[in-house]
């Protein structure tokens, strides 16, 4: 599935409005905000729809407006079939699952999502370390009262959980230390920038996103920038933010991925002509049936488009063309919030 899809779920007393644009969306947050009710209403909608199709005149208490089929599943349903058999019946669909689904944190479910063309909305607080979900697609619910004539209705939407943190604020920091997620091309690039700028900034690798949190330790007066792939860093976000808050001196920079930065800079425009549309409307290109995350989409795009060119890109080792000063400068221009000069 590609595209972004508006979903409106409405009952007599409550309306949910959501916009879903990636294969994995996470909704978490405080208790008592109506998360489980959302899935309940979708389950009810589908039950009422089935009953109507069978000729039962039980009425319809829930409506759903969406250009895609929506399916909700809670483990309370005493279905004798396995969760995978139930979910496999749905393709090109937006599937809503909540914390009653015990399997959300299993490798089997991660594999299922990877090979599925559906979009998944997962209402859970569990650490889903097997799923590469984006920090931009972690939401919490908010609601407000409105009136439909004399009938009071609660309208409920979702808002980004991490939209107001330093990650996106854009203020500029001069780091003393840079920690990159991986050891490959991204790390190679930022290390090369520090050598070019002669800024004395040390650039180290955490050797995997799972190991970044333990690198966040109290250090007096040192400014550290952590650079990771935002498109797949969702599972680490809560622990990272809390550790950063406790220690101070840390800033998180989360572009979609390093490949995204290269494409967005325009330096490979000769091989990816519509790059601007791709980076601003990625949801129209990154097919959930092919790509587990946008990070993998950008890597695949850059690798395939540059394969027989001077821009040949490899994730493990950075082609020296990307380390030419003019190219490093172009990539840095698209980075806000980090000042590499001394």
């Amino acid at each position: 599935m590609v595209g972004k899809h508006k979903v409106i779920i409405e009952s007599k007393s409550i309306v949910y409005e959501l916009e879903i644009k990636r294969n994995i969306t996470i909704i978490k947050g405080d208790s008592g905000r109506g998360k489980s009710l959302l899935v309940d209403l979708i389950v009810r909608y589908n039950r009422e729809k089935r009953n109507a199709e069978r000729g039962k005149k039980n009425g319809r208490s829930v409506s759903i407006t969406c250009d895609k089929e929506c399916f909700g599943y809670r483990q309370f349903d005493n279905d004798s079939r396995s969760w995978s058999d139930i979910l496999r019946e749905h393709t090109d669909c937006i599937i809503f699952l909540d914390e009653t689904c015990w399997f959300l944190n299993t490798t089997e479910f991660a594999s299922f999502v990877k090979h599925s063309d559906n979009y998944y909305v997962l209402i859970t607080r569990e650490n889903l370390k097997g799923l590469p979900y984006s920090v931009s697609e972690i939401y919490e619910m908010y609601s407000y009262k409105s009136y439909d004539g004399i009938i009071e209705k609660h309208k409920t939407g979702i808002k980004n959980l991490y939209s107001d943190c330093s990650v996106f604020s854009g203020y500029s920091v001069k780091p003393d230390l840079i920690i990159t997620e991986d050891e490959g091309s991204g790390h190679d690039f930022f290390e090369s920038v520090c050598i070019w700028k002669k800024n004395g900034v040390k650039c180290i690798s955490a050797r995997g996103k799972d190991k970044i949190v333990s690198r966040i330790v109290p250090v007096d007066g040192q400014k550290t920038v952590i650079i990771a792939d935002g498109a797949a860093y969702g599972s680490q976000m809560e622990d990272t933010m809390e550790s950063m808050r406790a220690c101070g001196g840390y800033t998180l920079y989360l572009p979609e991925s390093f490949e995204y930065l290269i494409i967005r800079s325009g330096i490979v425009a000769e091989v990816i002509e519509n790059y601007e549309d791709i980076v601003y409307h990625t949801y129209d290109y990154a097919d959930s049936g092919k790509y587990f995350s946008w990070e993998r989409y950008f890597t695949d795009l850059l690798t395939k488009k540059t394969i027989d060119t001077e821009w040949k890109y490899g994730k493990n080792r950075l082609n020296s063309i990307y380390k030419l000063v003019r190219n490093m400068r172009a990539i840095l221009e698209s980075i806000t919030g980090i000042d590499f000069d001394r």
Binding site: N127, K211, V213, D239, E242, S243
Partner: peptide, 14 residues
């Protein structure tokens, strides 16, 4: 909280 997060993360991710 900092120690709780570090322990939690170590156990669940590392």
């Amino acid at each position: 909280m900092y120690d709780f997060v570090q322990q939690s993360h170590r156990i669940m991710f590392e």
